[in-house]
Design a protein around this nucleic acid. Structure first.
Lengths: 204, 204
DNA sequence: GGGATTTTGTTCTCGCGTTCACAAACTCCT
DNA sequence: AGGAGTTTGTGAACGCGAGAACAAAATCCC
């Protein structure tokens, strides 16, 4: 489920605040969801709560982390080291959640050799070797839209099975490959749409 | 609708490729959605297509842009000029889609005066004055999670009605404020979850 | 001009996810 | 020990969005 990371984060916050036990109401409030939905989601993983008491924060946290694969380290490659690639490579949230950036790749020879976040930028053609060497399953695309599909194809070809795409394009890949898309300006456009609607409604 | 930006982008791509008219099938394929859904979405805006022919690419593009408020410029402030804030300030996709970064704010005095993407970083306390001066309706939060709620409160207080939140926290704001959340590591975690499931299924 | 063809706009049905509501189970207090 | 009070886990109803299917309308070809 896509909500598991949110629950995990909420549990971590609770744990850091010294809470050892919490009810589904508490956790749901912290995660910003309905408590019934939360309970149903958790029951899908197993019965980790105690009726009349609630959930043990650390225990539940471990269980969710295990289910999500957050207990192990995931090697990740980032392709396209422009502004966004830089920020992603430096983003501490990745490392703290079990993701390790094992390689930064860029097609532009000007960037090769540059060191970003302690990792040297290498040529894109090294992709296959790196994937094989580190057993990489997850790739991040931070290139311009024009090259994204080509990068995706070569990632799949090299054996990557999950892609996080920041380029504003629809990627065509096989069914066995999971693609997740983040479009920075799309979110802003949705907000602008709401603002626009507010404005037109006021004049009406 | 959240799909409008996707349609707009697909139309732009088609237009640049020299296409003047397209069917709902074509556009749906380019946008990666079902054609019936696309037609339903478009019919919600009005009858901009011609039966037996299709949609005029440029005309439809203008209509969607108008509906989304993409025909005017939206002033935007970015708060939190760390790695992510830098990348966002430099992100060309904002400007090309009608968003103008009018101010970069940071609570850290060390950063004040620094010029990022042609805009000087100013103290966070200038927020209210900037919002008033430029008529800013949209704010972007790129701070650590700990300060996000405080920043959001002050944004709302200053008159901002739409917030794009990159901090990994649930923001509590009034109902009249629209909040959109982008969580970079959440997306990766979802992918890792799928990888994890694949792995456990193989062993079973 | 009229039938065949294409494509939009819309109606209808289906399925999934969310929410409500309640029984089962556990604790606490007397 | 037993009843009152909590809180989980889950069965049932609701609502919404997605996709299929079809009628309306426009073009093309003869």
């Amino acid at each position: 489920m896509a909500r598991l990371p949110v629950y995990l984060r909420a549990l971590t916050t609770l744990s850091e605040a010294g809470t050892t036990v919490c009810s589904s109401e508490d956790l749901a409030a912290a995660a910003g969801v309905n408590s019934a939905k939360l309970r149903k989601d958790l029951s899908y993983l197993g019965s980790y709560g105690t009726r009349g008491v609630g959930y043990d924060v650390d225990y539940l946290r471990y269980q969710i982390a295990r289910e999500m694969g957050a207990t192990r380290d995931w090697p990740v490659v980032i392709v396209g080291i422009g502004n966004l690639g830089h920020a992603l490579a430096n983003y501490s949230g990745f490392r703290s959640r079990g993701f390790r950036v094992v390689a930064l790749l860029d097609a532009d020879g000007q960037r090769h050799g540059e060191v970003v976040a302690g990792v040297v930028v290498r040529p894109f053609r090294d992709l296959r070797a790196i994937v094989r060497e580190h057993g990489v399953a997850i790739g991040v695309i931070a290139t311009p839209a024009a090259s994204a599909q080509d990068v995706a194809d070569q990632m799949v070809d090299a054996g990557i099975t999950s892609i996080l795409n920041f380029a504003p394009t629809v990627l065509n890949v096989g069914d066995h490959v999971a693609v997740s898309k983040v479009d920075l300006s799309k979110e802003l456009q949705v907000l602008a749409y709401h603002e626009q609607r507010k404005a037109t409604q006021e004049t009406a």
